[in-house]
Design a binder for these strands. Structure first.
Lengths: 247, 247
DNA sequence: ACAAAAGTGTTCCTCTTACACCCATGA
DNA sequence: TCATGGGTGTAAGAGGAACACTTTTGT
């Protein structure tokens, strides 16, 4: 044995992104604590300790199901946060009481998830005492959760360029404008609507439906669906390609 | 306590990439084992258990210094491998004996590193009993190390498109052809040399030096250096940009 | 009739692509 | 002098950027 080595507790923390048609949102929960003074005070990302015989993706899925009631949601691992001081002594003590884990450190693994933020979801999460906040309005979270969030957003941005995951944040049927708003929100850019439509339709990524928006006090927009066939054959034969050619 | 939760041992495994002017290579080591029958049999990625008061990046750096003798090398975390069955019982037993860690599972974190593969490096690693193998020629590694390697390569490919890390695989002064070969090797594509030069020089990413290749039996190529100033101001004002516009 | 967002084309210009020959060196 | 890879330009076509008005609905 060449040095002191240790076992660590491992947790997952999930950055759950949603989109309300206007802004990119993240689901936050209140910290559970024995001390009622802290109750309902500090916001954090939903997370959990991993269990025996559970992989990290499984733990993340469990957290997600607990927060949103949904299974089989898109989940992607981001970064591990392993600073030995990231969880301080008093928190370790609380973990010992609450989880029955006695350890000198907790390493956490970041995940992000993409969910469709419909009214049912909003109701469900409200009953859980969780809140959806605009990404831009989140400035403080407990421990290093702000770092985990920032990191997840960066990873999400890159991932959206390489795979058609943006659609996981939209309803099954959506308008072109919703997609544009989403991309503008995620990247913090402005997109020319006419050129965007041209590229988008040329890419063949959208399927037209027969439906239109209802009950809007302006010309109703057509609803589209993702055309999954557009990704059947990966064209990375001798050429690199952005999936998101529509930027 | 709502369920059984555990502490785990955490290790890091490093995919150390090098480039010999022709092929992308990875540094592999022999498995250390108590059983002499296994000695010198099975290849693996260099790795180590994390120590107390050590972050994961620090552990990875330690592994890297051990394998290559170098400090301050570019290191990037890739993915965590957490399958409870990834390290089997006999291996856990060996870990207990060798490391003094008694645990039911070992979670490992993948890292990749980019090194300049000069003669000094080759000599050093040879003395360590490590081998540089072409990425394309590696088909079997112990445990799930093959997965860790494949994953690292995928991540490297994307990263190269977003930041000027490709140059970390080249000598300080290099020829255009070396850079082209590197990109062709990493992505498995062919690049038109004339168009490549045009874009490359237009991008301002290269600084010309006064030197040329020596002792080559053809017209000697000019040597260039990376122009770090080309990245001073991030142009992500309202536009997404590939750093690697030269693909 | 008015407000509000949907939907649509053209021009200009830049960037990409395809492609073949002379040059400098060591052997 | 020959073999080897280094280094250079152009023309044609595709794709990107900029830009303003008409349409459809609810109120």
């Amino acid at each position: 044995m060449d040095n002191v080595q240790i076992n660590s507790a491992i947790s997952v923390d999930c950055v759950i992104f949603g989109f309300d048609g206007e802004n990119l949102k993240v689901l936050l929960v209140r910290r559970r604590t024995a001390d009622p003074l802290y109750h309902d005070k500090e916001l954090k990302l939903p997370g959990a300790m991993i269990r025996e015989n559970e992989t990290l993706p499984e733990a993340a899925e469990r957290v997600l199901e607990g927060s949103t009631g949904l299974k089989g949601i898109y989940l992607k691992q981001t970064t591990i946060f392993s600073d030995p001081g990231r969880v301080d002594e008093s928190e370790l003590e609380w973990i010992g009481q609450y989880h029955g884990i006695h350890t000198v450190r907790v390493v956490t693994v970041g995940y992000y998830a993409l969910v469709k933020l419909d009214q049912g979801m909003i109701n469900y999460t409200r009953r859980q005492g969780a809140v959806w906040k605009n990404v831009d309005d989140i400035h403080h979270l407990i421990m290093d959760h702000m770092d985990i969030l920032s990191d997840a957003l960066t990873v999400l941005q890159k991932d959206i360029l390489w795979s058609p995951i943006a659609f996981k944040l939209l309803p099954k049927k959506f308008t072109v404008r919703q997609l544009q708003n989403l991309l503008e929100a995620v990247f913090g850019i402005e997109i020319d609507n006419r050129n965007f439509r041209k590229k988008l339709f040329a890419s063949g990524i959208l399927m037209e439906t027969e439906e239109t928006e209802k009950h809007v006090s302006h010309k109703p927009a057509k609803l589209y669906m993702l055309n999954r066939n557009a990704f059947g054959k990966k064209d990375i034969t001798n050429k690199l390609q952005f999936v998101a050619s529509w930027l």
